[in-house]
Amino acid sequence: MFEARLTEGSLLKKIIEAIKDLVQEANVDCSEEGLTMQAMDASHVSLCSLNMRHGGFDHYRCDRSISLGLNLANLGKILKCAGNDDVVTLKAEDEPDTLTLMFESPNQERISDFELKLMDIETEHLGIPNEEYKCTISMPSGEFQRIVRDLAVIGETCIITCTKEGVKFSVSGDLGNGNVTVRQSSAADGDEKDQVKIQMEEPVTLNFALRYLGFFTKATPLGSTVKLHMSPDVPIVVEYPIDGIGSISYFLAPKIDE
């Protein structure tokens, strides 16, 4: 028996919105520890990893580890039937063919339940090394979204350069080129969540496809902060912490000079 209850049901809506344009089908693994999901996009250029700790749920029970093969677009359709303030409960049997979703309005006046058919999904599970990155940038998620959106109008590839002073996002295309530099905030600058912080061992420059960075920014509503982890010649990690429950991380392979 698997049962997971989230008072803030809108969180689940936001999580699926953040993944479903990148990944069509995925296995969500449920265990005593919580929910995890790892999936690649169709072109196998990026990887999305979701982690929701059991402690972040208001009620969590998982007697036996199970894997839920989900069509994320269809799950998104069902979650659209939940109100933004609804409490959402997920339920499945030990050898499930369906996932039951129950939505309760805050005053308990409306209770609905839906069953989503599960699928058998063959996926390759990739081992992600626990790496120390040369640069870690923490910045407002809305700022990152704006930069990616703005630069995507000009070209396809973004050069991200991280130095102690700041992070430079550069693009060039047929119409011209552009750069946006965000500088490290000084300690006195306003709110923690509005700050740009850079931890750097050595400067890093890497090229990435803006199309994928754009997919990742669908996670912006999940939190005020995004973290970018970079080392030379390896995928960037774009990590969105989800307050109190876990995180969603996207890995994107760089474009490398031939």
Partner: peptide
């Protein structure tokens, strides 16, 4: 020219 790498090049199957 820049060539887009695949993610599997960096992470091994497990």
């Amino acid at each position: 020219r820049n060539k887009q790498r695949k993610i599997m090049v960096f992470f091994s199957s497990c």
